[in-house]
Design a protein around this nucleic acid. Sequence first.
DNA 1: CCTCCTTAATTCACGCCGTAGACTAACCCC
DNA 2: GGGGTTAGTCTACGGCGTGAATTAAGGAGG
Lengths: 386, 386
Amino acid sequence: MGSARRSTVSDLRRGNRALVLRALYFGGPASRQELALSTGLSAATLTNVTADLLFDGVIGEAGHVGSDGGRPRVLLRVNAGHGYALGAEVGETHVRVDLFDLAMSEHGSAEYPLPPGEHDPALVADLIAAGADRVLLGLGLPRARILGLGAGVPGIVERSGVVHAQAYGWRGAGLGGLLRERLPYPVFVENGAKAMGQAELWSGAGQGVTDAVVVLVGSGVGAAIVTGRRAYRGVGGSAGEWGHTPVAVGGRLCRCGSRGCLEAYVGAESVIARHGSTGDGDTRAAFTRVLDDPSPEARRVVAETVTYLGAGLGGLVNLLNPERIILGGWAGLLLGAGRLPAIREAARAYALTQPYEKVTIELGRLGPDAVTAGAATLVVADFLSG
Amino acid sequence: MGSARRSTVSDLRRGNRALVLRALYFGGPASRQELALSTGLSAATLTNVTADLLFDGVIGEAGHVGSDGGRPRVLLRVNAGHGYALGAEVGETHVRVDLFDLAMSEHGSAEYPLPPGEHDPALVADLIAAGADRVLLGLGLPRARILGLGAGVPGIVERSGVVHAQAYGWRGAGLGGLLRERLPYPVFVENGAKAMGQAELWSGAGQGVTDAVVVLVGSGVGAAIVTGRRAYRGVGGSAGEWGHTPVAVGGRLCRCGSRGCLEAYVGAESVIARHGSTGDGDTRAAFTRVLDDPSPEARRVVAETVTYLGAGLGGLVNLLNPERIILGGWAGLLLGAGRLPAIREAARAYALTQPYEKVTIELGRLGPDAVTAGAATLVVADFLSG
DNA sequence: CCTCCTTAATTCACGCCGTAGACTAACCCC
DNA sequence: GGGGTTAGTCTACGGCGTGAATTAAGGAGG
């Protein structure tokens, strides 16, 4: 953030409107009275602002609340159906688009397969646009109700929506621009893992928390650093590349070419390889086999994985002093399902006492639509701040 | 940051006033014309706001600038002498207070020794207050010109000014409160390393940069993560504990009790110990001897140190994707003086290409008053934002 | 049923703000 | 010294949030 701009007197209104809206969105139903307290605005202003929001249908009344001899307070809440956000996921083999309302409830889904190895940006944009059209078809939503579309993609996303993803051959693919040409509503593009991390804070294991790190363990290892409920991007949009943090200088060779990366110890494929399993194509099944294998050799590999993961987490706790760490990603969830206490213990061993006491380490709670939900939160975040 | 509050219409003025002031402070002298462009405010508002600032003496005119046939532009600049900030440093053996003007030029200094091993918070607060009084004595500054005092202290500082520093036996020392009881102007307390990091961005090797990591290598190893020109604190104020990031799981024993911490390879004492020097008390001299020792054994130790430091830096680059990394701390400066290219090369080897291309790794530029200067920037930052 | 009390929400007059557009100031060139 | 050009100021206007007064909506007590 360079310089927060606030200039005209009507920006003031916009800002206060957003302030009230956010208070209602994240703080649940509340009366004008409570809102005045939590936002610091005067009762008079609250009447004005809420009148605006009510008129626009953004919020609605939600019953009264008892009185001790005075006029009862009218509860207000965000009208979940006032706006809808589209969330898209660009995966290895498919493109998927989900429709969410403001409460992040899903209202429709569309999925198209991608031809193997084919990730032409224009084709991807076409499929996303087609999915958006299809998912909206039949619902009869006026266009004004569609707040926008967020897309979660692999690789590094610059601020403008330009994407770099080696695996897809994208070197500066202008996906944001391509989507904006095709869609009549605002478009947001973000790295899928970062979007997912934001989703965990909005509707998963990080509800109520504003600063956290969401750790994603799959074949690769990554992290989404979330501050102020928003994914931290860094200067080029690549912040959160956690997998290639050196945890054993001169250690195991990593697929990135370096040595001793965290991913070379904790990534699913490394675990499988260290166990000596043959890659039969189904990484997930192989990983589960390692976890369930009772042989001492397998137990050693798993224990080592837990140790390295804990070391990595300890480093994160020390460096970032987050309020919560959320372990996710398919391998992370499988590993954490039975071994979360051991992971916590390993993290404690490598973290300093002070910051470790402030953090809670939890498992991610979001299902398979985490990426699309996260992408949709980009849209909702924009709606809530402007 | 939870929720940015902006409510009344006069907060709007305060915000715009601060916006203009910051533009002038960080952007150097500028005409109203240029300010209108850079802040987005209208020319009329700029006249109003600058008239206010001129009236208060916060800014002043700084000559005219040529014209190509039109009215010449009047340059405005911050009046460095309008306000003064006190910066205090609480060291192992002394307490020091420096006085800075808004341009961060030093205008006076006072230093008191601390009795060996004696760090009673009330005593420290007394000495800081005495130092502040002494440094102000004779300058005849009206109290309104003193914007406040910032204190850089060891350990973990909570938001309220409560300090935890094991080495000093401070467990929740209420230094902020103690200072506020003694001083008639605002008080800010922050970890010394974080304050120093902020200083490097304001007047050192990070000028013009808003997001950077300042790495401090001495006997201990730490980092100050600076985003938006402010030190990142984390949830409990302990963010930036970089020294105990595991870089060699199961490796060398660290004084923190864990194994394989970065500090156990890069910290000055570790370097000296690996070289086999005897600790003759003067760590600095011993460290320099290792650096200058031409023996193959010493060269190996130094090369190893560079490698581990590079690995750590690579991890930071990947995780945080900063715009700049500034290497500081006495040992960091000594090491970097001759070996910065090697350190950069080592960092490149452990960082991913994309984020490494966005970062520049530089040596810190601030001298011995870095901590007091940094502490004073806390005061100035407050002045500039409100 | 009516009155009094309490609390929530609204209305109203006021002062302040930023802006557009008209206007003045200050300089250059010829 | 007149025309041209650009910087900065002045004025009228509409919008905002606020405090104080006012209205709305219920409970308690008789």
